[in-house]
Design a protein around this nucleic acid. Structure first.
Length: 860
DNA sequence: CTAGGGTTAG
């Protein structure tokens, strides 16, 4: 009698041919025992419904086993992660076919056992079995999820050799592997080289690849090509393309996709639902997001998480908290994504009370060791100015990643501890954590704030070496850093290379030009910005008005000031008033300045009064000067400047008694003038000088150089201005005292030790003295040097005997913060101390110096 | 009996 083999039997079943009873009896010697294919099916059903051990019992009881039986049992163990048992069974298998090998290999791949999987892959071929598309697919999946690029390339090579390289299934694996290993170009190449592109899985892998490599537009385009080629989407495709829509804020296209989802009936899928909520939320359409959330059947944590994030991003922190409370009440399995989002909303409104409650809940539910959660805790404590708690959470983390460090670094920077932020960055590098764009942007902002050019340059170099693609935030921070460090050309270069610019980019450079004495360039850039379609903001106008006041452009300044509210709806703040009052004061329009002061609809702050007082010094308006000084005595009781200025105004007007009275008042109130200090950074060491300072190891050489300088610049026409000398010494003493001002000692040091051709960069904690300013002009000409002097107000560039900067008003020495998450462009000009970190080429801290004291404080 | 693609984060 004819006997069917198993394969034939199965194909008969699959084409629907019912086997008659007589066939059964021929196939099985005992007539009431079910045929083996049925037993195999039962075996398969058992483990797939989770009854693995029952499956094994059945396997053991079977008196007859065929290849199917063995393979099914191996696959069952392999799939469930019981790899040892799978291997044991595999070894016992009498007849190993390709499927036997693939089943075991797929198990090792699924659980990331790279060595075992690849060993079996090799052994299989050694024993004469050819890997199939299944084998290659499994291996590629492992390479993809574990980012094993070179292993993946090996498989790719194997696929080419064995002519699998136009196999749609293998190519899907390759596209996914290359995409996940961030080789999007290779992924695209494989995709395009695939002849048969009817598989929706292949398309989905490509769309996801684009979407996850931050190329939302390409992902969307790919999705459209897929539609055009008539390939239908499914529950895997939609989330992917929706993520891309969210990333590029393509709400309209996203809504069209939504329509398509409803048409094809995939809206009930959890992943699709979540992606929809997320897409609407990220596009700022919270109403649609809410509607999508409400129409869902059952609770889906991911969708709720997306909704919480959406609310936070749109500035509805309170609603985010309410949503969280609802989630908690509904007991919907709050996870490690929920906590970061809700902590985020606490962070942005500094709601520390709720933050602490959430922290308690985290501890209670055992989520404190989740990295995302701890990172968010560090962030919320740092933003809430509780740096101790931030540091404590950070210290307890076992696995700190770049985000953990970033949270702490930005936290310290946010609270004004820029030096600590930089130090932490160095520590991060020391423990071997690679920076990313976000921490780089943050650190560069801190460099800008401290005007530590060398450090900033090293961070820039470090960033270039990392080979990361730049981002808008990084570029913006670079522009701001170079501009604030007086390297306006470098700032300009970064600016020119940028393909996308926003208001922060333009403003950084506008402010940069203004601070570096290029008022006209500042205004020209502003016009360019308007032409480019970018709207100015609060800070743009500070830069612009600062530029006008420095360039003496009264009319333009007035116009810009007027346009703020009228055209752009930006209400002027104290900083704007300070600039405009300075502008008016400088051109002698004291009455107008006074009028403006009285019209102000915000409370004048110290900056405004300082601008006014400075103007009074030039134009001698006693009444206004007294009013301004009095206000300053209250606002900044420890600041000596208003005392000195007012006293000088009295002297100039001949009111000697009043001048003396003020000096006495200052003394009796214990207000001291901050001593002038100048410093120069050279080879990562800071050389600090006080007036008539003799503590520097090279003192003798420096003083000899000063004598030489004085002789040479006097020959060139320099006349010492005794008004800037001390009063109680004779003429000769006065002149000598002038010669030994801290900035002159610094410039002498610079002339001696800074190589010819390199600019001499001097920093001063106070405003540069008038006589030194004149002397610098002569020195730059006589010694053919470019001197850049940064004082408490701005940068002075001396070249060929000309100073490019004349400044009177200082930016408010507070910090202007933007309300969004971009790096802050801060208008604070200086801190009175500077410092330097000694770095090796690979950015390791060697030692840490505080310039203000000149002491090496820490060795690492 | 073996295989591939998806959502939420600083």
């Amino acid at each position: 009698m004819y006997k069917f083999n198993l394969k034939q039997l199965n194909s008969l079943r699959y084409v629907g041919i019912e086997l008659c009873h007589s066939f059964h009896s021929c196939l099985n010697s005992v007539s009431n025992v079910p045929p083996i294919y049925e037993l195999n099916r039962n075996l398969n059903g058992l483990w797939k419904s989770g009854q693995l051990d029952e499956a094994r019992q059945m396997f053991d009881k079977m008196y007859e086993r065929d290849d199917f039986t063995w393979n099914t049992m191996i696959a069952a163990y392999a799939h469930s992660g019981r790899l040892d048992e799978a291997k044991q069974l595999f070894d016992e298998t009498p007849n190993k076919c390709s499927i036997t090998w693939s089943s075991l290999i797929s198990g090792y791949c699924r659980y990331g056992c790279e060595t075992e999987a690849f060993y079996l892959f090799w052994q299989m071929q050694y024993e004469g079995q050819k890997p199939s598309q299944f084998t290659l697919g499994s291996l590629l999946r492992m390479c993809s999820s574990n980012s094993l690029l070179s292993r993946g390339e090996q498989i790719h090579a194997h696929a080419i050799k064995t002519q699998f390289n136009s196999n749609a299934f293998v190519n899907t694996g390759l596209v996914d592997m290359y995409a996940k290993c961030s080789c999007i170009v290779e992924a695209q190449y494989i995709f395009e080289a695939t002849p048969d592109r009817k598989s929706h899985v292949l398309w989905t892998a490509m769309i996801t690849g684009y979407s996850q490599s931050n190329d939302g537009l390409r992902a969307i385009k790919c999705f459209r090509d897929m539609q055009a080629e008539g390939v239908v989407s499914n529950q895997y495709t939609f989330p992917s393309v929706l993520t891309a829509c969210a990333a590029v804020k393509a709400r309209r296209f996203g809504a069209q996709v939504h329509g398509h989802i409803i048409q094809t009936g995939f809206e009930a899928n959890m992943f699709v639902e979540s992606a929809l909520v997320d897409m609407y939320a990220k596009c700022g359409d919270l109403n649609s997001a809410r509607r999508a959330l409400e129409t869902m059947e059952g609770d889906n944590v991911v969708s709720w998480n997306s909704m919480v994030v959406g609310c936070v991003r749109q500035g509805f922190e309170k609603e985010a908290l309410l949503l969280f409370k609802k989630m908690h009440a509904r007991d919907m399995g709050i996870d490690d994504f929920t906590y970061p989002s809700v902590l985020n909303s606490c962070a942005s409104i500094k709601d520390m009370k709720n933050a602490k409650s959430v922290h308690c809940l985290i501890v209670k539910t055992g989520f404190e060791d989740y990295k995302l959660v701890s990172n968010a805790l560090v962030d919320v404590y740092a933003k809430g100015e509780d740096l101790c708690s931030a540091f404590e959470v950070f210290n307890h983390m076992t696995d700190k990643d770049v985000i953990s460090w970033t949270s702490l670094v930005t936290g310290y920077a946010y609270n004004g501890s820029h030096e600590i932020a930089l130090k932490l960055f160095c520590e991060m590098r020391l423990v071997g954590v690679e920076p990313d764009q976000i921490v780089i942007a943050s650190v560069l902002s801190a460099c800008a704030e401290l005007t530590v050019l060398e450090f900033g340059q090293q961070v820039h170099a470090n960033f270039m070496k990392l080979g990361l693609e730049s981002t808008l935030s990084v570029d913006n921070s670079l522009v701001a850093m170079y501009a604030k460090c007086g390297c306006i050309e470098d700032a300009n270069e970064v600016f020119n290379l940028m393909r996308i610019r926003d208001v922060i980019t333009w403003t950084a450079l506008i402010v940069g030009y203004a601070q570096n004495g290029k008022g006209k360039d500042s205004l020209a850039l502003y016009n360019e910005m308007i032409v480019s379609g970018t709207k100015p903001d609060f800070i743009t106008f500070i830069g612009l008005l600062f530029a006008c006041s420095h360039a003496g452009l009264v009319e333009q300044g007035r116009e810009y000031f007027e346009s703020m509210d009228k055209v752009y709806g930006i209400k002027p703040g104290p900083d704007h008033y300070a600039c405009i009052i300075d502008l008016l004061g400088r051109s002698g329009k004291m009455n107008e300045a006074k009028e403006l002061l009285n019209q102000m609809d915000v409370e004048p702050d110290a900056t405004v009064w300082k601008a006014l007082l400075s103007a009074c010094r030039v134009h001698g308006n006693l009444e206004l000067a007294e009013r301004a000084a009095k206000a300053l005595f209250e606002l900044e009781p420890q600041n000596a400047v208003p005392y000195v200025l007012l006293s000088n105004i009295y002297s100039a007007a001949g009111f000697w008694d009043d001048a003396a009275r003020l000096r006495r008042l200052m003394k009796s109130r214990g207000v001291c003038k901050e001593p002038g200090r100048s410093w120069i950074e050279m080879n990562s060491t800071v050389h600090t000088f006080m007036s008539e300072d003799r503590s520097h190891p090279k003192t003798e050489q420096i003083y000899l150089k000063i004598d030489e300088i004085m002789i040479m610049i006097k020959e060139a026409g320099y006349v010492p201005d005794m008004n800037f000398a001390l009063h109680d010494v004779d003429e000769e003493g006065k002149e000598l005292g002038l010669s030994y001002h801290s900035e002159k000692l610094a410039v002498a040091f610079g002339l001696l030790f800074v190589p010819q051709g390199a600019p001499i960069r001097i920093y001063k904690n106070l405003r540069v003295c008038g006589d030194c300013h004149t002397a610098m002009k002569f020195i730059s000409r006589v010694f053919q040097r470019h001197i850049i002097l940064r004082d408490s107000n701005c940068f002075h560039h001396f070249r060929e005997g000309i100073s490019k900067t004349k400044g009177l008003v200082s930016f408010k020495s507070g910090v202007a913060k933007r309300m969004d998450d971009t790096p802050q462009l801060q208008v604070k000009v200086i801190s009175s101390s500077s410092f330097s970190l000694m770095l090796e080429e690979n950015l390791e801290v060697k030692y840490w110096i505080r310039a203000s004291s000149g002491v090496v404080a820490k060795e690492a």
